[in-house]
Design a protein around this nucleic acid. Structure first.
Lengths: 355, 355
DNA sequence: CTGTTAGCGCGTTCAG
DNA sequence: CTGAACGCGCTAACAG
């Protein structure tokens, strides 16, 4: 009886139709609710019918319709990740880690890549809102705070990443660039360097400002005057690294150490140093910012201040998950910082006594 | 009348509730269907009421519930992207490009990162199925073809990426590694090299096998015997690059050119070459596989056979989109190849006359 | 042009 | 323990 074949078209799932609770209910000769309860494992169902339903569901290849479930439960179990690009090593780790952790927590992740374009960002924020995401991890351009506010108004959790524009209504987790640069500069100081150049990001960015500030603080603390000709701030591009390096190293009195605190420019810095035949670390100690695998395979291996993207990602996801679980709760707008760590390899040495 | 305030709690969207069609309908004093039609821009609505509805919807901050819409229309407008990791440059481009193109076509992308683990892959395939994705871009481990078949059985489009295990039921777009390696080797031959070493991937992978085959074919065509001591195949890890390089370059008669056709190993190859003090390209011409930005900033800049991830991504997405649009249609299981391109920089020179 | 009705697939009362 | 009935928010016939 149970295994009898009905000649009414059996929903054999060969033609674009999906197996639904009703199909199983018919087959098992019980009601939809019973099937639903059995599948949910509520324990409110007769053991024997439960296992029978489960078996039939399995045989029919049943898979719940997440959309329908979301609608009924009013919870989408969807989260959004919105970043600039996927090229930056930090964002890669962010995507990998958050995707894994969200999945483990039963959430699916919608990925959006803005290219740092406010227009794109606005469009994506709307779509994500439409999908009723329960949480948003966002590296904001700053131009769409109103759209972001909409999420928290609708009771979804938001955690900001990497950038903060001051007074948002949600928590943000940022790199502690000020301290990282401070610490990196101090290391150079420890090695005896007194003439330290820096290539840093644009001063209208968080990281650019903070890293420069850290550098200055370290120097000032040691009573060393800031030499304007030693500091170059500019765009996050390799080309800028070239020109800045050229300028700094052509000085009548060039530095003995260079802090390349603009990651994208580092490519140009390293290239230009090689072009000029400046040998590292003998003639110049080099310290970069943000670790990438090839740094450790360079000759000499490049020392870095690593921004620790893993830590940031982990913290951000945990925060978001917790926020989702506990409800919006307190909208403090805290700013958390994840510390940088210094990885000393072979590109920095004590300043030579004659230097 | 229209603007009168009802004392029943107005849905002012300040408390986690979302504005629905019904809210607008009440406010505009029309039926839900009229609102739906007005918002959909069907033109089946009186111009004046349409604009009024639109205005009210806007004022109330209405945003359609994508989940409910999906359920009603039986189309989720969701697609899935499933890859190994996000570190590989090819996958980054894949993610960026596909996300952008899908978004432009009105699809949202669910990202899944498998870590090349069949277990993870299986879990993700199920979740994606549950979400009723309309299309899937997948770099398959090969262990879950049954789960992938389920998608095409359910009439969703599938396009395979990078790997093919032979006889799948869906189209795949792969890199033309055999030709890329063949072409790269030929370039080296053109430069006069006759002793050419190769460091390549594991022979139980598609790319590993094909690249080695391409290398061999180029040599054979020129009547040059394959020297076993010149070919090293192994894992996709920098460490392997080190040992392979060490072995090859310690040979009594080392090659005059080295083809590092295992991208991950290239880091180690380059590092080890530097360690041994082998100067490129004077003592050895070096050709790598898969371009990354830092190759062009090395001194000398590294020549590469670039696998052209953009082309692959673009083609794959187009294929999938088209497949979604036209329905499953022919399930030919075609295998498309995107050609590699050679980017000659400074790491290869003609073999020296004395060499 | 508009309103009424009927689902989409599922969870969740509320009675039995 | 089980089934009937309702609703999630929206689209899609079907009448008027």
């Amino acid at each position: 009886m149970v295994t009898s074949e009905h000649d009414e078209s059996a929903p054999s799932n060969t033609e674009g139709r999906f197996v639904t609770l009703r199909d199983i209910a018919r087959m098992a000769e019980v009601s939809i609710s019973t099937v639903s309860r059995a599948l949910a494992g509520t324990g409110l169902v007769n053991k024997r019918t439960e296992s029978r339903v489960l078996r039939i569901a399995d045989e029919m290849g049943y898979r719940p319709n997440a959309l329908a479930r979301s609608l009924a439960t009013r919870s989408s179990r969807l989260v959004g990740l919105m970043v600039n690009n996927m090229v930056n090593a930090s964002f890669q780790r962010l995507a990998e880690i958050s995707q894994a952790r969200f999945a483990a927590a039963g959430y699916q992740m919608l990925l959006c890549i803005t290219g740092d374009d406010p227009g794109q960002e606005a469009a994506y924020l709307s779509t994500l809102f439409d999908h009723r995401i329960e949480g948003l991890l966002v590296l904001p351009t700053g131009a769409n705070s109103d759209l972001i506010e909409r999420f928290i108004a609708a009771n979804s959790a938001v955690v900001g990443l990497v950038r903060s524009h001051g007074h948002e209504n949600y928590d943000s987790v940022l790199f502690d660039d000020a301290f990282g640069a401070y610490d990196g500069t101090r290391q150079l100081l420890e090695l005896g360097h007194r003439r330290i150049g820096i290539v840093v990001g644009r001063q209208d960015t968080n990281s650019g400002r903070e890293r420069l500030a850290g550098y200055k603080r370290a120097l000032t603390e040691r009573g060393i005057a800031i030499r304007p000709e030693y500091v170059h701030s500019g765009p996050f591009r390799p080309e800028f690294g070239i020109s800045a390096t050229e300028a700094i190293m052509s000085l009548p009195e060039p530095p003995t150490a260079l802090f390349s605190a603009n990651h994208e420019a580092s490519l140009g810095v390293i290239g230009q140093l090689a072009t000029k035949g400046i040998v590292i670390p003998d003639q110049l100690s080099l310290l970069c910012y943000e670790d990438v695998p090839w740094f450790s395979w360079q000759k000499p291996a490049i020392s870095v201040v690593d921004a620790d993207a893993e830590a940031l990602a982990t913290l951000a996801v945990d925060l978001l998950l917790q926020r989702i679980a506990t409800g919006a709760g307190s909208r403090t707008g805290r700013v958390l910082r994840v510390g940088a760590r210094i990885i000393m390899r072979d590109s920095c040495t004590p300043v030579s006594p004659i230097g």
